[in-house]
Amino acid sequence: MPSETPQAEVGPTGCPHRSGPHSAKGSLEKGSPEDKEAKEPLWIRPDAPSRCTWQLGRPASESPHHHTAPAKSPKILPDILKKIGDTPMVRINKIGKKFGLKCELLAKCEFFNAGGSVKDRISLRMIEDAERDGTLKPGDTIIEPTSGNTGIGLALAAAVRGYRCIIVMPEKMSSEKVDVLRALGAEIVRTPTNARFDSPESHVGVAWRLKNEIPNSHILDQYRNASNPLAHYDTTADEILQQCDGKLDMLVASVGTGGTITGIARKLKEKCPGCRIIGVDPEGSILAEPEELNQTEQTTYEVEGIGYDFIPTVLDRTVVDKWFKSNDEEAFTFARMLIAQEGLLCGGSAGSTVAVAVKAAQELQEGQRCVVILPDSVRNYMTKFLSDRWMLQKGFLKEEDLTEKKPWWWHLRVQELGLSAPLTVLPTITCGHTIEILREKGFDQAPVVDEAGVILGMVTLGNMLSSLLAGKVQPSDQVGKVIYKQFKQIRLTDTLGRLSHILEMDHFALVV
């Protein structure tokens, strides 16, 4: 994948999101292997301009796509893939009243899908469409860049269908997702969380590099694949309309690839034109409109599966009536509230959605109805927002919020430890010299600072030695090549209790 991002070429006709291997024109390309080798690009942008032909009021008969309808489940399912879809609609009884809503608040519980998330729908649909058009064949390999849930859905379907599955996901995604993927037989590649989507090191860039190296491999490409919004247009939206008897006044959905909100909203605009569509985008993402909503100094966020630093091709923002931004604290607070007060075992993005819903639905009156999409299960986040310690460490809970008995030293300040200034190293000294210094002084790690004293990161003896043994660096290389740029900081005025929580999850903390 090139470091400079080429513009994806656009073909003359058809839909841009065809499933299957992508040609340089962004659509299915038939021909000899030699032709494909000559024409197939190194990668295709996940934010390529959409060429979708959908228009409100256009006859369904003019759609270029294969459409399906929700099917009634048999008493005995032939395999677990038949437990994807037909998820329950559940009334939220307490939270709406707590925040003064007059309307009825309903939750579409997508964590009841077989793999635990709304992404099971698009995973199965992308595979079925690729099999139907002859792209996927027995023994082929599926590769997908994902925040985890699409990966789980694909790995689940691949396990049943017999495909090899490789999932490329950023490091910030939970260990629970990784464990589930491994249990399903998927191979996992992790990428830096802070890598831009168009960087060769991003999950998108690495996935395309693997595709170019592995024979008979395919990126189904949830960011561009029409099967993504079509899955929701054909099934999720129809289920909502049936469950609500066609009567709903507002739908609120958090947005990642945009397939969920695009597919549902398009069908609702056709069948229930008075329904307002509300999009939820986390602070630090750029999906919301108008652009002024996205202006923030924050560039990272903890909530998973929603928000991006690019506009995915499948996201149709014209069908969203209003956007709201959400933050991590309210997302996790509301997710825990949904679990504790409503018994809905949902993930953090569901918290984002409901946090926005109780604001947006203030305009609705008694007798009206708001539906929220709860995308995934708490299963993926047992060591994250479900953990009091994690919430404390991230600053989303305060010590006084917890009532468990603490040891005698818990409320003492870090400054009472009488710490001395640490050994520091410059980023320009060599790895070999740094190892000598650390061994001589008896230290395992040291902060790396520039000549102005600005902290650049941390270097550890173990990481340097393993990097040297693996051949990633040489003793003569500058130590700046092996620094940890993500590390926890703590102030002298913070409590030892807070430091204790940090050290339970990290090997060190830097006192500043």
Rank of each mutant, 00 (worst) to 15 (best):
G14D: 11
I122C: 04
K72R: 10
R182H: 08
P16V: 02
W208V: 08
T68Q: 14
A107S: 07
S175P: 05
S23G: 02
K94V: 05
P145S: 02
P200E: 07
K94C: 14
H218P: 04
Q7I: 05
Q7W: 02
R164F: 05
L220T: 02
L42I: 13
C109A: 15
K102S: 02
R209T: 06
E9V: 10
N212R: 14
H203M: 08
V168T: 02
F112L: 02
K108G: 02
A158R: 04
K39N: 12
D221Y: 14
L101R: 02
L56G: 02
Y163L: 05
S123T: 05
G263D: 02
P229I: 11
L156Y: 04
K211M: 12
H218G: 02
A159P: 07
V189I: 07
L220W: 07
I44L: 09
G263Y: 02
L124H: 06
V204I: 02
Y223C: 08
L154F: 14
V118I: 04
G263F: 02
K25D: 13
A48Y: 10
P16S: 05
A60F: 05
R224D: 02
D245R: 02
I166V: 12
L56F: 14
R196H: 02
S147F: 04
N225D: 02
R164A: 08
P138Q: 06
Q7R: 02
T146L: 10
P145I: 02
L124P: 14
D234A: 09
I214L: 07
H232K: 10
S19P: 12
K97V: 07
E270H: 10
S32T: 06
E4V: 10
E270M: 07
A130V: 08
L28A: 08
S199A: 02
P6I: 02
K247I: 13
V178K: 08
A8P: 02
G11R: 09
R209V: 09
L241F: 09
E62Y: 13
I214Y: 11
Q243T: 14
I80L: 05
A183V: 04
P273N: 06
D221V: 02
K108F: 02
I92F: 10
E37L: 14
I92C: 08
A158M: 02
A130C: 07
R224W: 02
L81V: 12
R196D: 02
T257P: 06
L181P: 02
A183C: 12
K25I: 15
G100Y: 02
N225C: 05
L81Y: 02
R190A: 02
T146Q: 11
K98R: 05
D234M: 10
R196P: 10
H22E: 13
I122F: 02
K97S: 13
P12F: 02
R209M: 08
E40G: 13
N113H: 08
T5V: 02
C244A: 02
A107F: 05
N212L: 12
R190E: 02
P21Y: 02
S217W: 05
K102A: 11
F99R: 02
S19V: 02
E171V: 11
D249F: 02
S254E: 02
T260V: 07
G205F: 14
L251F: 07
C272W: 10
A237L: 02
L241S: 02
G116D: 10
Q7F: 15
Q242W: 04
Q222I: 02
M250R: 05
N113V: 04
T5A: 02
I261W: 04
R132G: 05
R161T: 02
G153T: 06
I92D: 08
I44C: 07
E144G: 02
I152V: 08
A183F: 02
